[in-house]
């Protein structure tokens, strides 16, 4: 017969072992890629990018602030057309559209329209390049980032850390998850405070004809 004290010690031991196993499992589920694996991923994504002329996708955005009880969730639609036209539209819980085209940024905030010349703003220009590159998954060549390649089962995760000190002030790390076909599935922007914005893409269709009128404000 096990004494009560011994039973408690045993229980704690089992919990610790389970935690340890779970920890090891978590650590194992995200492992660094070898150079050849990283090169293969880059090649797969680049090849896909070369043949991708248009993308349309739904997305869910989660804004995580450490002190909040729940992440702030918003839903929307993304439309992309080569070389650099983007329509980023929130449909719930508010209506807001931002269009990137011809070096400018056009905003329609529930009927209030405004625009901004991105050419005059280096940070916006960089942000636009970042968004375009991350939608197409083509960030690998950007010298502004130091990339780390990781494997999670059949998916790949790449962490990009900005090298520009000005950029690092508001983004600590930019993490992209690719599915097995090399498509971007999830983007996470982590701030220096560890708060983050996570965007999960769904219902992605590529290379359908998209009219330029979609990018009118």
């Amino acid at each position: 017969m096990i004494h009560r004290k011994q039973y408690n010690t045993l229980k704690i031991g089992i919990i610790l072992i389970l935690l340890l196993l779970f920890g090891i499992h978590t650590a194992l589920s995200q492992v660094p890629m070898t150079t050849s694996e990283a090169d293969a991923l880059k090649e797969k994504v680049k090849a896909l990018s070369r043949t991708t002329k248009t993308i349309s996708s739904d997305f869910v955005q989660y804004k995580h602030l450490d002190f909040l009880s729940n992440d702030i969730e918003s839903k929307g639609k993304l439309v992309f057309k080569t070389p650099d036209k983007i329509r980023w539209e929130y449909v719930s819980p508010f209506a807001y559209v931002v269009i990137f085209k011809d070096e400018s940024l056009y905003i329609n905030d529930n009927g209030n329209k405004s625009s901004m010349d991105m050419g005059s703003n280096a940070i916006f220009k960089q942000l636009n390049q970042l968004i375009t590159a991350s939608i197409k998954g083509n960030l690998f060549e950007a010298s502004e980032f130091k990339a780390t390649y990781l494997k999670i089962k059949e998916k790949s995760e790449v962490h990009f850390e900005p090298t520009d000190p000005q950029f690092r002030e508001f983004i600590k790390s930019f993490q992209i998850i690719f599915n097995d076909t090399g498509e971007v599935q999830e983007v996470k922007m982590i701030e220096p405070s560890e708060d983050y914005t996570q965007i999960v893409f769904d219902n992605r269709t590529t290379n359908q004809t998209i009219s330029d009128a979609v990018f009118d404000q």
Binding site: K63, V98, D109, M189, E191, T197
Partner: peptide
């Protein structure tokens, strides 16, 4: 209290 203002895209 904490008060935070972000853009719609999430930038603080």
């Amino acid at each position: 209290h904490r008060i935070v203002f972000t853009t719609e895209l999430g930038n603080k």
